Simulated assay, not measured.
Amino acid sequence: MKVVFDFGGVVFRWRPEVLMRQCLPTRVQSREDATLWAARFFQHDAGDWGEFDRGAVDADELVERVARRTGLSREEVQRVVDAVPDELEPIAPTLALIGRIKEAGHRLYFLSNMPAPYAAELRRRHRFLEWFDDGVFSSEVRLIKPDPSIFQTALQRFRAQPRDCVFLDDHPRNVEVARELGWQAVHFVDAAQAALALEDLGVLRTPRAS
């Protein structure tokens, strides 16, 4: 079986509301402010940020676009953009889950919406990415989830059939599209829940009680 991981929110921490509080303290005074600014800034992976994910705009152009659209200063936008790599910290329970999957003899892949600068930074910082046989970053193929084309591109890249892939993602729409295309897919909430789902699919064995 080929197990395919999303990255942000699954393998790596992704807390946009926390990022807003840290980077825009004068504008974000409450949890509600953080939620509104996160949605406005990142546009739920659409708009300007979606084009950044797609590799259609670089970081400098992104900063200009977001500043014009939101009314934030260029310095404020740049602060958020620069802070993202430090937010993308590995999630320890997910790494343990990946280890179990690898030990069970399955092959590991990733399929992630990720702007080019962050993709390069993840590869530079994290040696455990060598556990993955291959992967697709959106910015490298100029496609983003949930576009079905990126799933087809991944299948070609991984030399796989949909039925042979299990996909884990924290965004329900991405999971729905994968299933519509014939993939097995798990809506990832946390590593413990995902492990149970993978046991149900036969990817992992239920640990024996001691």
Rank of each mutant, 00 (worst) to 15 (best):
74 R>Q: 02
39 A>R: 13
84 V>N: 04
48 D>V: 11
51 E>L: 08
74 R>H: 12
35 T>W: 11
98 I>M: 11
31 R>S: 15
28 V>F: 07
108 L>W: 03
102 K>F: 02
73 S>F: 05
30 S>I: 06
86 D>G: 13
77 V>P: 00
60 D>I: 06
51 E>F: 02
44 H>R: 13
81 V>D: 01
102 K>I: 00
32 E>V: 11
27 R>S: 10
100 R>P: 00
63 V>L: 07
60 D>C: 05
107 R>A: 15
106 H>L: 06
79 R>H: 12
94 T>H: 06
104 A>W: 03
115 P>I: 11
87 E>S: 14
74 R>W: 05
106 H>R: 02
31 R>L: 15
46 A>M: 04
107 R>H: 11
34 A>I: 09
74 R>P: 02
91 I>Y: 13
40 R>Q: 11
81 V>A: 05
53 D>M: 04
26 T>H: 15
82 D>T: 13
47 G>L: 05
103 E>C: 07
52 F>I: 01
118 Y>S: 04
55 G>S: 06
47 G>D: 06
83 A>R: 08
51 E>N: 07
69 R>N: 12
65 R>V: 05
105 G>K: 07
76 E>F: 07
90 P>W: 09
118 Y>L: 14
70 T>E: 11
112 S>P: 02
116 A>R: 14
95 L>W: 08
54 R>I: 01
36 L>S: 04
32 E>T: 11
109 Y>F: 15
90 P>K: 10
31 R>H: 15
72 L>K: 01
52 F>D: 00
37 W>L: 09
67 A>E: 09
62 L>T: 01
69 R>A: 12
117 P>L: 08
34 A>E: 08
72 L>H: 01
33 D>Y: 13
83 A>Y: 06
37 W>Q: 02
63 V>P: 03
34 A>M: 07
116 A>W: 02
38 A>S: 15
41 F>Y: 08
74 R>F: 01
38 A>V: 06
101 I>G: 05
72 L>N: 00
98 I>T: 09
96 A>Y: 05
86 D>A: 14
78 Q>W: 11
65 R>E: 06
64 E>C: 07
103 E>M: 08
75 E>G: 10
69 R>P: 05
92 A>M: 10
86 D>N: 14
118 Y>D: 06
82 D>M: 12
87 E>H: 11
95 L>A: 09
33 D>R: 11
85 P>G: 12
65 R>Q: 14
25 P>F: 08
48 D>A: 15
77 V>M: 02
46 A>W: 03
88 L>I: 07
55 G>E: 00
75 E>P: 03
28 V>T: 12
